[in-house]
Design a protein around this nucleic acid. Structure first.
Lengths: 153, 153
DNA sequence: CACAACTAAGTTGTGCGCAATTAAATGACC
DNA sequence: GGTCATTTAATTGCGCACAACTTAGTTGTG
């Protein structure tokens, strides 16, 4: 056996590998963003706005805080984003009567109707990735583990 | 065998899977950003600035266009970023004498010296991900394939 | 009740990402 | 040689991400 632990991985390779992985993730995230941008242009949504709409379509009216927890976004990002969605007539924001600090976000009829037009989007993206379902699951699994680990650190 | 192609994957599952994957990637990218932010704070670099420095450390002086090609970033992002690196005293920018359109970016002595202080960063990130080398390779492979496929679409 | 501690949104400022445009230099073609 | 398309950076404008701070409402404790 090697003296201490595992097969040797020279520092230089680690440095290069890290370079590749961090850059790969950065590049992949932006590549996804680009494809979503094209697919969502017809709907008048940006990618982060689409994520917020997904949450609202799936879980219904909810406070800003809850949206932020689901998407890991803070009020600094969500407040102006939600204002834009409100200007676009897709959501309403109203102070909760029980807790005046809280603002409940709910879909307008127009926001509700947009869902039907958004349904074809995921399949288009899925096709564009060129991955199989199994590979997507693997990717998702790895990303989830990385995110959890990184969030703890 | 099933009539046409493969095991049935209901639409609803596809939609949810897509939701998970696009969100997972988004979240992972930001989680990486957060960890790099902490690791790079001592160096006074942001994550994209670090990527530019990596390119310069590895490949030496080069025009803005080449940096953009390596990192898939355009001048709209790079021009202000490079100005900040120049203000920080890490790089110099000078018009090429052969081609007056081109601007060559080169490290200053301070930029060169920063490399030594940046060396420990990758290992810290690697440890923070909690992944094995093999998993990192898998992740990188999948991300690379996705990025290529998405860029073509 | 008063007052400190906490919580939810919002605001401000900085930096990145990208589309669209501009300006200057180069190269090709007639 | 002069016109025109192409190339390289820079600029402008908009939206997102995040840190730091502010404001207003809530809760807990003496």
């Amino acid at each position: 056996m090697t003296p201490t632990t595992r097969p040797p991985v020279p520092d230089a390779e680690l440095l290069r590998l890290d370079h590749q992985v961090c850059f790969s993730l950065h590049a992949a995230s932006r590549a996804f963003g680009g494809v979503y941008r094209g697919a969502l242009k017809d709907l008048g949504l940006t990618y982060p706005q689409y994520l917020v709409m997904l949450v609202l379509w799936e879980h219904g009216p909810q406070p800003v805080k809850t949206i932020g927890e689901r998407l890991r976004l803070d009020s600094g990002t969500l407040s102006p984003l939600l204002k834009r969605l409100e200007s676009a007539g897709l959501v309403r924001r109203e102070r909760s009567s029980e807790d005046e600090r809280s603002v409940t976000v709910r879909l307008t009829p127009a926001g509700d109707e947009l869902r039907a037009r958004a349904l074809p989007v995921p399949l288009r993206i899925l096709a564009a990735t060129g991955l199989t379902i199994e590979e997507l699951r693997t990717l998702q699994g790895l990303l989830g583990r990385v995110t959890s680990a990184l969030d703890e650190a």
